[in-house]
């Protein structure tokens, strides 16, 4: 097994074992979706109109708040030191960790979206469109969050500070994600335009997040 696939498999195992975070993200997502109608009232037409936005906000918060321990756990138990001596570039190792994180927390959010869409009175077509935009957009959220996770290692803090640092960076993803979802329902833009930009944002975030996180970690180690 190569170094990167070993790291990938280990992180997935850790996420699904006792104490791992897989599943909590979806639960958090469901709670956000449930709380919104409490706040704005049970008007089904209104919910149907703002449903894509609620789903996007819920998925955004769920995928960022679960990133808290992604790198700090490895820094605290010394795994990060050994990862550095492995001969694999740190950036690749960090990117693989982010991919494993997305697979265990981001992808379940995408799969859950059509079901949660029912709660918000979205029809199947709209829910599928939102799920599709989330499938394209959540990797961007994970990789942007990765920067925050790396900063959390050097600051020796996590939690809310992490969210404050990272949430502003996610604004473009949120804008085009919701725009693409709305385009699929009402128009006037064609779905393709904002969706393509969203995909581009994801690709940029994957590169930028990986290198920024790698740099932040190298500084944190000193």
């Amino acid at each position: 097994m190569t170094a990167l696939s070993a790291l990938f498999v280990r992180d997935i195992k850790l996420a699904v074992r006792v104490g791992g975070g897989a599943g909590i993200g979806v639960l958090f997502f469901l709670i956000v979706v449930t709380l919104t109608p409490f706040a704005i009232g049970p008007d089904l037409n209104l919910l149907g109109r703002i449903g894509p936005a609620i789903l996007w906000l819920g998925a955004l918060l769920a995928s960022l708040l679960t990133l808290d321990r992604l790198l700090t756990a490895d820094a605290e138990d010394g795994s990060l030191d050994l990862i550095l001596t492995g001969g694999t570039p740190l950036e690749l190792a960090v990117a693989v960790k982010a991919l494993a994180q997305w697979l265990t927390t981001g992808l379940p959010l995408v799969i859950a979206t059509p079901f949660f869409g029912l709660l918000l009175n979205l029809d199947l077509r709209t829910s599928t469109a939102v799920a599709l935009t989330l499938l394209a957009g959540t990797p961007a959220l994970t990789f942007i969050g990765l920067i925050g996770a790396a900063l959390a290692v050097s600051l020796r803090r996590g939690g809310l500070l992490l969210a404050v640092l990272v949430l502003p960076l996610t604004v473009p993803v949120l804008i085009f994600g919701v725009a693409a979802s709305n385009a699929a329902i009402v128009g006037p833009l064609p779905f393709g335009t904002p969706f393509t930009i969203l995909c581009a944002l994801t690709l940029v975030a994957m590169v930028l997040g990986t290198f920024a996180a790698g740099t932040a970690l190298r500084h944190a180690m000193e």
Partner: peptide, 22 residues
Amino acid sequence: GAYWVWDARLTSVLVLFLMYLG
């Protein structure tokens, strides 16, 4: 005409479900 409405009964059962998951 909808799979879900935010009726009092349904909503409190949904909250119960969330608490079970917690």
